[in-house]
Nucleic acid binder design. Structure first.
Lengths: 257, 257
DNA sequence: GCCAACGGTTCACTATTATCACCATCGGCA
DNA sequence: TGCCGATGGTGATAATAGTGAACCGTTGGC
């Protein structure tokens, strides 16, 4: 079904930071012919999945997704569950908590909460989380098809801080460790002086649907703190997994007291 | 792009009341071959737009829509605007207010609020609003392609109450009146003893994106009440239209004091 | 007033997708 | 028990669909 693959590929280029894209630019990004690109966009437009800015002629996502997201949420209320769980996690750990779902190129934040205290990590919920540079990304890769990881490593990885790991083999090792441990602790990978501890939540088929994580200043990173956060993140992960009909992975189960 | 048409057609059968559908049933509903249906579903699944219940083997919408809906909302924050405006409308009129967006077969509620008082109309936000039986539906049809109306009238219309209008010509007349007036007042069409007054909000190209409405018990329907509600609904409509980059239609503009 | 880039379109060419007949499996029912 | 009719799922050929280089008209910068 190559037509569908191309269609979905096109959709994946629309992001919060680039929500409107012109025809030529989109064709270039997707490495497709302009004519093909346009035909797909027009087709999607007929079904309200794409709209066009009448002035700039740029294309943007349509209202159809609003509708389907509501239907999806009616079946599997992941946003609702995640919001609750993130609140609980933030209250327990007194650190910033956030949950995200997978998309082709990154994780998208669906819920977040910062605690009431002096120094906290602030999160921009519209910013996609790159797989290789975040704890959430590593655990997501660890509990997904190996193809996703390998496709990611084909292209050179972006350095978000001086400490971002961009060596493919090192990333593979991190993913392997996350798979073994059921969680991952990442430091300075996405933002300097921030440590993230994440665990995935799983679909019924055992693949990761997304990840839940705690982000804290590295200055507060002690063994006791990590131990405490790890247990709470694992519990939060298990809670969401169960709620969406998944089976909690043994490596996560054993982290919970 | 027939493949895309078929794909989107399949997606349109997933509704809050029927969020999981088996292969044979879906193929029958869409009047497609089982093999074709399955290939499309598998393709969508690869991109996380469809998931399968491992036990019942039924298909449901995937998490991809969550992500795209967030991107869409980042561009055109219609849900956020609608939520605010519905609150304002409810507070002003002291009646139930709700906003909805168009989908292929009905309108989907994206925001609603009931006022604090004795007798109010209660709304189930998961229930799709049929075009022909609601004030919102009539105004949505009035400010959309005539094809949508004609396709709807091809099939026999469903009677939701004893008073639901199901005669095609009568529905055409109602739509024409809504187009002329910029609003529509519907009584007993969807629920007995409820009157709905709706106005559309428009995209930049002049077509309706959705509708905003007030629902009240028919017992409170007086000329002054209707007049007051009409003005507020028109103002709310104009507010949303402007916020999403549309141009307020003259017939709606003239309703605003 | 040129050039380069844009959005959009065309039509000969070529690839993809549909269909039917098929299989394995499940759950009732006698 | 074994049959029936339903389900999910599959594969090879026939039929239909999608592709893309080259094109047009416009816009905006230099």
């Amino acid at each position: 079904m190559k037509t569908i693959d191309k269609t979905m590929r096109l959709l994946s280029f629309f992001t919060p930071s680039q929500p409107e894209i012109g025809l030529s630019e989109l064709a270039r990004m997707a490495e497709m012919d302009k004519a093909t690109t346009r035909r797909i966009l027009v087709s999607l437009g007929k079904h309200h999945f794409i709209e066009q800015n009448q002035i700039t002629k740029a294309y943007r996502l349509g209202s159809g997704f609003l509708h389907l997201a509501r239907v999806r949420e009616a079946t599997t209320p992941i946003t609702a569950i995640a919001t609750q769980t993130v609140e609980w996690l933030c209250d327990c750990t007194r650190e910033t908590a956030h949950a995200s779902v997978g998309s082709p190129n990154a994780l998208i934040t669906i819920a977040h909460k910062e605690p009431q205290r002096g120094t906290v990590v602030m999160i921009d919920p519209t910013e996609p989380l790159p797989f290789h540079a975040t704890a959430s990304g590593i655990v997501f890769l660890a509990f997904n098809d190996a193809d996703l990881l390998e496709n990611l490593l084909k292209k050179p990885l972006k350095k978000h801080t001086d400490h971002t790991e961009i060596d493919p083999d090192a990333v593979r090792a991190r993913v392997a460790r996350a798979r073994r441990d059921g969680y991952y602790l990442n430091e300075h990978g996405f933002e300097s002086d921030v440590a993230g501890l994440a665990a995935p939540y799983l679909n019924a088929d055992g693949t990761a649907a997304g990840a839940i994580a705690v982000a804290m200043p590295t200055t507060r990173k002690t063994d006791e703190q990590i131990h405490m956060v790890k247990q709470h993140v694992a519990a939060a992960s298990a809670r969401i997994t169960t709620a969406i009909g998944g089976v909690v992975h043994p490596s996560i189960q054993k982290l919970i007291v």
